[in-house]
Design a protein around this nucleic acid. Structure first.
Length: 288
DNA sequence: CACTTGACCTGTCCGC
DNA sequence: TGCGGACAGGTCAAGT
């Protein structure tokens, strides 16, 4: 669920809220959510000041003054929510999707010296935060093999099409979801961009024409930029750094819209399974 | 090497 | 009402 636009929304929110704050305490109820060797937290996290927040693909990096980085992956149900002192004990803001924190899905709590807190919530426990030396982050296996950022200014349609040659015999949807091809695409924006480009998700990659790759490149960037504009997609769990939902789902054309009319031609949208994922298409606009 | 499937988890929904 | 099973979907390990 958190894909590139959602993680980017969290990054922007956290940049406003926690850069410059100093971490005073950390606790977790689940070692897998925060798997750090004994002593590292005391030595490199407590007393550290947040210096920057970066994103690569769906990975968020909270840089610290100790030259360590809290590398964070939200996976499917992760949330990073900041709560300032004034909110404590005052119920929760009416526009927030979640209530008092911590709650039963809180896995990690970071407390700052001003008593405000950052909560890492993760219902399904797939996500994690890892404390890693900043100059070693780029050497992580995932960072070594992840594909280019689709929204970078210098990322061209030609480079986009070339990335897919490595997955020529699989379906276009499986290739889009492959993080080593293009970074940051997940199930929502795969379906939305394929609909925009009028490509059936089960089409084999080596049957996609250059014109179709160009349409897909344009649609993917369009959809992701719109989603960032709307603060991401909240299907169930996703919230931004203030606990608020994103509104892209109000603009979705096919995702989770099975049984409804295609906004382009009126045909009923259907749901199928492609690459092991729930997949939404217009059977008229997206022919196999 | 290319590609697919299962595991990791918890909560919700559906049919009986 | 309870209960089993399917489903949700990001990534890695294991299998074909």
């Amino acid at each position: 669920m958190p894909e590139l636009p959602e993680v980017e929304t969290v990054r922007r929110g956290l940049s406003e809220l926690i850069i410059g704050r100093t971490i005073m305490a950390a606790q977790t109820d689940n070692p897998k959510s925060f798997p750090n060797a004994q002593g590292q937290v005391e030595a490199f996290l407590l007393g550290a000041k947040v210096s920057d927040i970066r994103r690569r693909a769906k990975v968020l990096m909270i840089d610290l003054s100790t030259n360590y980085t809290l590398v964070t992956h939200l996976k499917m149900t992760g949330q990073l929510v900041y709560r300032g002192k004034k909110v404590f004990g005052a119920g929760h803001p009416s526009d927030s999707l979640i209530g008092e924190l911590p709650d039963k899905s809180t896995r990690v709590t970071l407390q700052f010296t001003d008593e405000s807190k950052l909560f890492f919530n993760d219902q399904r426990k797939f996500g994690w935060m890892k404390l890693i030396p900043t100059d070693e982050v780029a050497e992580l296996p995932f960072m070594q093999k992840v594909g280019p950022e689709p929204l970078d200014d210098y990322f061209t349609f030609e480079q986009f099409a070339e990335r897919f040659t490595r997955r020529s015999r699989t379906s276009i949807k499986a290739a889009l979801l492959d993080q080593t091809v293009i970074a940051g695409v997940g199930n929502i924006y795969a379906d939305e961009s394929l609909w925009g480009a009028k490509i059936h998700p089960q089409r084999q990659v080596n049957t996609i024409t250059p014109a179709e790759f160009e349409a897909l490149y344009i649609e993917l960037r369009l959809v992701m930029n719109l989603a960032i504009d709307k603060g991401g997609s909240t299907d169930k769990n996703y919230v931004n750094a203030e606990g608020k939902r994103g509104s892209y789902m109000d603009f979705a054309r096919v995702f989770r819209r099975e049984g409804l009319a295609c906004p382009r031609c009126g045909t009923t949208i259907i749901k199928l399974k492609v690459a092991g994922r729930g997949t939404h298409i217009c059977p008229h606009c997206q022919q196999h």
